[in-house]
Amino acid sequence: MPELVAQRDAFGEALVDLGARNERVVVLDADLASSTKVSLFAAAYPDRFFQMGVTEQNMMGVAAGLATMGFVPFTSTFACFAAKRALDQIRISIAQPRLPVVVVGAYGSLLVGKNGKSHQAVQDAAIMRAMPNMTVVAPGDGVEAAKAVFAVAEYGGPVYLRLTRDPCPVVFDDSYEFKIGPAVVVREGSDVTVMTTGIMLGRAVEAAEALQAEGISVHILHVPTLKPLDVESIVAAAEKTGRVVTAEEHTIIGGLGGAVAETLGEHRPTPMKRVGIADVYSESASNDALLEKYGLTSGHIAAAATALVSGATAATKVKR
C-alpha cells in the first residue's frame, strides 16, 4: 500500500515554508482555516494572516487590493465557495486586471467530509478554465500540492489552486520538480493512455497495476495544469497509444475530459472515454460509497481502459 498524505496537510505545511522564504506572501481566510490548514500559516505569521470572516466575495477584493500593493495573497476557502460564490469578484477584481492572487480551492472534489452537495466542488475547474487570464492547477498528491505552492507564488498572475481534503496515495517522491504547464508522464505504457488531473492520479496508478496483470499496458499522463493545457504532450500520448481515458474527480463537462476531447478533436481524433462525475449533484455519504456510486474508483478507470482496448463502444455503466 502506498503512503497516504492529505493534500491539505501538505499544503498547510508548505505554505508555512513559503512564508519563511517570501515575506510578501499573505494569507486571507474566510473562517475555515482549521479545515483548510492555513491555520498553520496563521500561527506562524499572524501579521501576514488576515481573518476575513465569512465574506468570500469581499475576501477576493481585499486580496486584489493587496496584490496591487506588491503582495502575493493566497485566499483560502472551500472550492465550492471560491469558484461560485465569489466568481464575479474573481473575474472583475483578480482575473481581468491580471493580479497575482492565488485563489485556493480547498475541498475541491466530491470528498468533503460528508457535507454533501452544497460543499462538493465538481464544476470549479471547468468554471475557472473558462476564465481568461486564469491558470488552473490541480495537484495529484501531497508532494505535488506542496511543490505547487511555491510555483504558484512565483507565477505572477492569477492562479486557481484546486486541492483536496482527505489522505490520498503519494505518487511522487521528493525529487519531483513541479512546473506550471507541463503534463507529466508517470508511467510508460503502450495500449491505452490514462490522463489524470488531481487526486485521480493515485487511482489511475492502481488501475494500471491491476491491468498490467491482465496484460494491458497503461501509459499515464498526469495533467496537473488544466490551463494552460499542455496540448503537445496530450497529442503525443494519444498518438502513442491510440486510446485515451481521462480521469478526474470533477464533472466530465469542461474539466480535463472536456479539455482533452477539445484538444484531440482538433489535433488528433482518438477514441476516448471520460471517467468523472456525470451531470448530477451528488450527496452526503462515506468516501468509498461516493466514489463507487459516482464512478470514480480505480475499477472504473480500469473498466474504461479495458473497454477501449477491447474495442467495446458501450459507455461504462454507473450505478444510480
Binding site: R48, N58, G61, A63, G65, T68, M69, Q89, S93
Partner: peptide, 17 residues
C-alpha cells in the same frame, strides 16, 4: 460593489509596508 474591498486591501497593504 467591489471597489471598497480592494480599497481595504490597499489600506492593509500600505499599513503592512
Amino acid at each position: 460593489g467591489q471597489g471598497l474591498s480592494a480599497g481595504v486591501g490597499m489600506a492593509l497593504g500600505a499599513r503592512l509596508d
